[in-house]
């Protein structure tokens, strides 16, 4: 009977494997489409006189924070002559469950144009308030640049900072704000990271 159980395990795994192989390209395409859609929504103010360019992968120095993926995928936004902004992904591993994937659009002065949590597994009803489908919390960062606030202000209010932490779910907003702070500080100190030669 143990053998039979193992056989059933094998058969069901094979079945899932087949479906996985069939749906994989479709899932990748669907994810890419969702990412692009999000990109357009995020960088909308910049698209008045700019256009989304082909993404560029760039190696980062070893002092870059862990919130940035290496190599970093930079999607430049440019008008006829200059790069007027960029969209980059970053992440936080300090959320309540799993990695929170975020996407940020910055203008050429590194002012936040848009910020979104694009993939996360935070608790429904508590931590998922970082999602624009639930609340507008994440839009409160729009228009800010790293130098607008003192370093201590870049934190949730529970930690003495400027940003609202949700009742009962401080871990999630804290994870987002801290990852954002690390990312922005690094970019502020190394502004050339985002510059992409066309």
């Amino acid at each position: 009977m143990t053998l039979r159980l193992a056989a059933f395990g094998l058969i069901t795994s094979l079945f899932v494997g087949v479906i996985y192989v069939i749906t994989k390209p479709l899932i990748i395409a669907a994810k890419e489409e969702a990412r692009l859609e999000q990109l357009y929504a995020l960088a909308e103010p910049l698209l008045v006189d700019g256009a989304i360019q082909t993404p560029v992968r760039k190696e980062l120095a070893s002092n870059a924070p862990a919130t940035l993926e290496r190599p970093l995928l930079i999607t430049p936004i440019a008008n006829a002559t200059d790069q007027i902004g960029s969209v980059i992904p970053f992440k936080s591993t300090e959320g309540y469950s799993g990695t929170i994937q975020l996407l940020i659009a910055l203008d050429q002065n590194q002012r936040i144009i848009g910020l979104r949590a694009i993939d996360h597994k935070e608790t429904p009803g508590l931590g998922d308030k970082i999602d624009t489908r639930k609340t507008d919390w994440i839009l409160s960062f729009n228009g800010l640049a790293y130098r607008d606030l003192s370093p201590d202000d870049w934190a949730v209010d529970k930690d003495g900072g400027r940003f609202d932490s949700f009742t009962g779910a401080t871990i999630t907003p804290r994870a987002v704000v801290n990852a954002l702070k690390d990312t922005l500080r690094y970019l502020d100190e190394n502004p050339d990271v985002l510059e992409v030669g066309q």
């Binding site: 479906i19 749906t23 479709l26 899932i27 669907a30 994810k31 489409e33 969702a34």
Partner: peptide, 8 residues
Amino acid sequence: LLVQAFDY
């Protein structure tokens, strides 16, 4: 997997 592929 199917929902992910056909209605992301």
